[in-house]
Amino acid sequence: MQKLRDEIVAKCKALLEDGTVDRVIGWEKGLFDYDCSPATFTKENIDELVYNEYCGSNLSKYLVKESKAEGNVAVLLKPCDTYSLNELLLEHRVKKEKIFVLGIPCGGMKDEKGELLMKCNTCKGNEHKIADEVMDSDLTVPEARDRFELVEKLDGMTPEERFAFWQGELSKCIRCNACRNVCPACTCLKCVFDNHASGIDSKANADSFEEKMFHIIRAFHVAGRCTDCGECSRVCPQGIPLHLFNRKYIKEINELYGEYQAGETEDSRPPLANFTKEDAEPSVIYEKGRD
């Protein structure tokens, strides 16, 4: 890992030296070993860049802001992070001509307890879906489990049991907005939850029902666009399994419109954000919904 880190730093230095980019988005060491945080580096501090098994965070979202600023920027993306970048490019949120994507290998990331991150249990594989250059390595990605296992378990519950499950989870929410802020699909200039005119802003504490609506509305907003990067659950300080909402929608979309992986390519059309003559008829959705 240290060798890989040194090679990455060397590559970044070369990119900074030859003027390809002015900044690099990577990770810096935090207070603790497991606490690697996203950071922007220049020629002056590039040696402070770290890359180890605690660099789980997805850096693609930082390009929204960084690609708007002066100069060009390089970004370090693990294979699964590249799906999010494709989605951002599709939605014109990142200026492609101003970025350099350095694909970096990944052997699975860990949480503060040293266990494999939730998202790594359902690893998307070792292929970078978009990259200007990919670093070599002998790292192998973890084996992927069925990502719909828990969703199916929830589907199998009675509505009362399911309601109780989500009530238990969502009542822990402190409405810190971390899930929204980290989500690479949540990049609206002005979020509906910050916009009084939307009628749904900042109502988390009004009553327990509103608190559920926040998460359901948020999951609906990213439905079909969510790449299942799992950042929402990773950052939740209360440990709410928010990714299950997204996976529920992904499963539904796959069943209604055929298998679709958001961010697989740079020019895909998310089924819910597209108009085609072959769109599933409301009657089809109604019939399916009754099952």
Partner: peptide
């Protein structure tokens, strides 16, 4: 204008091709 992020979702779902995009200076 001040709420639009330019993501193109609206243009993609429009059955009539009524929505286009343009680069425009705004004062937010």
């Amino acid at each position: 204008e001040l709420l639009c992020s330019g993501c193109s979702v609206c243009a993609n779902v429009c059955p009539y091709g009524a929505i286009t995009y343009e680069e425009k200076e705004v004062n937010d």
